[in-house]
Amino acid sequence: MTIRNAMVLAAGLGTRLRPITDTTPKPLVAIGGKPMIDYALDALTQAGIDTIAINVHHHAGQMEQHLAHYDRANILISDERDRLMDSGGGLAKGLKLLPAGPVMVMNADLFWLERPDLEQTALEKLAGFFDSSRMDMAMLCVTLEHTTGHNGKKDFNLNDDGRLARYRDGDDNPVVYAGAIAMDSRLLADAPDEPFNLNIYFDRAIAAGRLFGTMLDGEWITVGTPDAIEAAETTIRRFNREVAA
Rank of each mutant, 00 (worst) to 15 (best):
T23H: 10
T235V: 12
M36K: 08
C141R: 00
P35Y: 02
D86L: 15
L216I: 11
G33H: 05
G224H: 01
L140K: 04
R237C: 07
A122V: 13
A180E: 02
D217E: 14
P27F: 13
R72M: 09
A165W: 15
T45E: 08
G88Y: 02
L9S: 11
L110I: 08
R83A: 14
M106Y: 07
P226S: 07
M104L: 14
N199D: 14
A208K: 12
S133G: 07
H69Y: 11
R81H: 06
G33M: 03
L123G: 11
M215Q: 06
D131I: 00
P99G: 00
E119W: 11
Y39S: 00
W112E: 08
N55I: 07
T214D: 03
I77M: 04
K153V: 01
T24N: 05
G224P: 12
D155Y: 06
T234V: 07
N5D: 15
D169C: 13
V103S: 05
L44W: 03
L216V: 08
E119M: 15
G162K: 06
T143N: 15
Y177P: 13
E233M: 02
M137S: 00
M104A: 09
W220M: 07
G224V: 03
V29I: 07
D38F: 09
A100E: 15
L158V: 08
V243A: 03
A189M: 13
M135P: 00
K26G: 04
A208T: 07
T222M: 02
P102W: 05
A189I: 14
P27Q: 06
A231N: 10
G170V: 00
D184F: 03
